[in-house]
């Protein structure tokens, strides 16, 4: 019977191995066929031209910008909210808010997408359209705001759990030394929960970089190289690139391979972020 459990665990490892194998097996040769620098650093994505170009740099940058924006917006609000729920929230209110945050985590991305398309995009267009000569509200800003909202529950719940886990003695000691409530929370408890907070942020980054359907409806999807200050313009992310074009690629074509290769790049990105986080964590632990 013991064997059954071992086999189960083994299958779990097998799943990830399979994913790696199949994605890399189709993706890597494509990258080499196109040429790694042409693929990763190329700025033109024109797969259906007679002389096709498969540069995904605009998409890589698009993913980075949109995720960065989401983190900039979502992390402060999420952390403050976590502080609120852990240390400043009256009991009865907490019993309503906590399930509400869990609910927010469960809302399907199509619904967030509707909200983004019908509320956020027109709102941005009306507010900035004339001043900044915008074509439409579909922009990096819209995507960042939407993603920021979507990662809030992730950041909030993990950060809050970790804040609550900080020993009460730390709080009491700080207060005994004369610090006010707010000062203690911000200067003593938050730093003590730092590794948990970092974990929340990393998970938030992962969620933001991987979101597809909701982003697709608000981000514009122009496969154009952008600079960070052009955040009112639209862009394409790696995820939306895959989803938009996958429907009509020919089997086994270079175009098909390029999309799978985009998936590989995405995968590697996430691995790097996780690895970075582990390294930071280990450094902290050994200090």
């Amino acid at each position: 019977m013991h064997i059954v459990f071992v086999i189960a665990a083994f299958i779990a490892i097998l799943a990830v191995a399979l994913i790696c194998i199949f994605l890399f097996a189709q993706g890597l040769p494509t990258i080499f066929e196109i040429g790694p620098s042409k693929f990763l650093l190329g700025q033109k994505w024109t797969p259906t031209n007679s002389n096709p170009a498969f540069g995904i740099l605009p998409m890589i940058l698009g993913s980075i910008y949109v995720t960065a924006g989401a983190i900039l917006l979502g992390v402060p609000i999420g952390l403050f909210m976590a502080v609120f729920m852990a240390r400043m929230c009256p009991g009865p209110l907490y019993r309503i808010i906590k399930p509400a945050i869990n609910l927010m985590a469960g809302v399907p991305s199509v619904i967030y997408g509707f909200f983004g398309m019908m509320v956020l995009v027109p709102m941005i267009f009306d507010a900035f359209g004339k001043k900044f000569d915008m074509m439409s509200g579909d922009s990096m800003l819209a995507a960042s705001i939407l993603l920021g909202i979507m990662i809030l529950p992730t950041i909030i719940s993990i950060a809050e759990t970790n804040l609550r886990a900080v020993p009460q003695e730390l709080y009491e000691a700080a207060v005994a030394l004369g610090a006010s409530h707010e000062r203690t929370v911000f200067k003593v408890l938050l730093p003590a929960a730092k590794s948990g907070v970092m974990a929340a942020i990393v998970l938030g980054i992962g969620r933001a970089i991987g979101e597809t359907m909701a982003v697709k409806m608000v981000v514009g999807n122009q496969a154009v190289f952008r600079l960070p200050h052009e955040f009112l313009k639209g862009v394409r992310t790696m995820t939306t690139n895959i989803v938009i074009e996958m429907g009509y690629v020919e089997h086994g074509s270079l175009h098909n391979g390029a999309l799978i290769a985009t998936g590989v790049v995405l995968f590697v990105f996430i691995m790097l972020i996780n690895a970075l986080f582990s390294i930071l964590n280990n450094e902290k632990a050994s200090q």
Binding site: A15, G263, N274
Partner: peptide, 17 residues
């Protein structure tokens, strides 16, 4: 690792495999 993979990559894998 599995927990961090975006769902579209799962979709891609599911389609291929």
């Amino acid at each position: 690792t599995l927990a961090g993979i975006p769902s579209i990559v799962f979709g891609l894998f599911g389609y291929i495999f």
